[in-house]
Design a protein around this nucleic acid. Structure first.
Lengths: 100, 100
DNA sequence: CGACGATATAGAGAGATGTCAATGTGTATG
DNA sequence: CATACACATTGACATCTCTCTATATCGTCG
């Protein structure tokens, strides 16, 4: 439970790019196709494809074909795993000098 | 509240390196000096210094001098801000097809 | 099948990142 | 002050990252 730094680091790396973080946030409102996402950014289609590949391969985003379109959505299980990381860090926190 | 993708991306980038993620986790058990952290890794002292600078400048880690030592600790306010990002993503999530 | 629209892949280039050895800076202590 | 210890900075290097243009692939429809 404490040794999957590699996996968590991969999740964080996937979200550490501002474009990808925005995309991930967009997906929190539901499944989107690549064309919908592309409209929101000033990047080319291949660049978006590159970012979606990184998000998909990290495991944080799922993809499926729907006819001609690729639909992307958040993988909740892995998002929860990532949240768990931060929750555990919070738990370990020494609370004696709580000047939050 | 929705436009600080840049700041959040910076937090995530700071934690997206496996070494830095481990360090951050170590700090959740309380303040540590650089020498303590260095013992846990197979990296040189300048490399650790480089990582600590990235963590400190991101805002997720605080540093203070204690005589000859540098003491590092987690900045809770900014950790909470980062957690908030994930909580908000969770909130937006469409729950109709909850196959978690 | 042939053409078209949506997405993926390849190749290239500029810049960022992680690492080290060497050296500098700051703090205590004799 | 001189020395030693803890940490920071510099410079160099290999690798990774993000972006683009050009081209390929895949699915649909006539």
């Amino acid at each position: 439970m404490k040794e999957d730094y590699g996996v968590h680091a991969m999740y964080l790396k996937a979200l550490s790019d501002e474009t990808r973080l925005k995309i991930f946030d967009m997906l929190s409102n539901g499944e989107l196709c690549a064309c919908d996402i592309l409209e929101e950014f000033n990047i080319t289609q291949p660049t978006l494809s590159y970012h979606m590949k990184i998000l998909s391969e990290s495991g944080l985003v799922d993809s499926r074909r729907d006819g001609v379109w690729m639909k992307y959505s958040i993988n909740r299980k892995n998002l929860e795993a990532l949240k768990q990381l931060f929750d555990n860090i919070g738990l370990n926190m020494d609370n004696t000098s709580s000047h939050l």
